[in-house]
Simulated scan of single mutants.
Amino acid sequence: MTLYLSGPMSGLPDFNYPAFHAAADRLRTAGYHVINPAEHGVHPEWTYADYLRQDLLQLLTDADAVAVLPGWRTSRGTHLEVAVAHALSLPVASLTTWLYRATATSTLVLEGRPV
């Protein structure tokens, strides 16, 4: 499953990239494929709209679901990404929820139970 990672960036120190990278690492370790918008890096010539276009394109074309970071409710970009996900009937859940689901699924598979 490919998760699009969504959360607040604008106005935060280092654009909140450390939180994005840490979350992506945890999700990948749990077995997910992750689209991490922080991996685009900083492009001084890009506007907010340029970043949003790139992020929405990846969400629209490559994501199976969305993982939201803490503080996402304060982010207008994340609100838009979540609205798009809902319009596409993509599941949206917190980082913690996706990590729990991966652990629960792994446990069930290891114990030979159907998922």
Rank of each mutant, 00 (worst) to 15 (best):
Y17E: 07
T61R: 10
N36L: 03
S75N: 05
D50R: 09
V68I: 15
N16P: 09
S106P: 03
D50F: 02
D64N: 08
A49N: 08
T61P: 08
L27A: 06
H33W: 09
V84L: 02
V68L: 06
Y51D: 11
G71V: 10
A65V: 06
L57I: 13
Y51F: 06
S106K: 15
T97Y: 13
H79N: 09
R113T: 06
R101K: 15
G112C: 09
P91R: 12
L27E: 04
P8M: 05
L27D: 02
T78E: 06
V92H: 03
G41K: 01
L3F: 07
Y17C: 13
S89M: 08
A19F: 11
L59K: 02
R101M: 14
Y17P: 00
G77W: 05
Q54C: 12
A85E: 01
P18H: 08
A85C: 04
Y4S: 00
N36M: 07
M9Y: 04
E81V: 03
Q58G: 09
S89Y: 09
G31K: 08
G41Y: 06
V84W: 00
P18R: 13
V82R: 03
D50P: 03
W46E: 01
L3S: 03
P18A: 04
L90C: 01
Y48I: 08
P114F: 01
V34A: 02
E45F: 12
R26C: 10
L5D: 01
A87P: 04
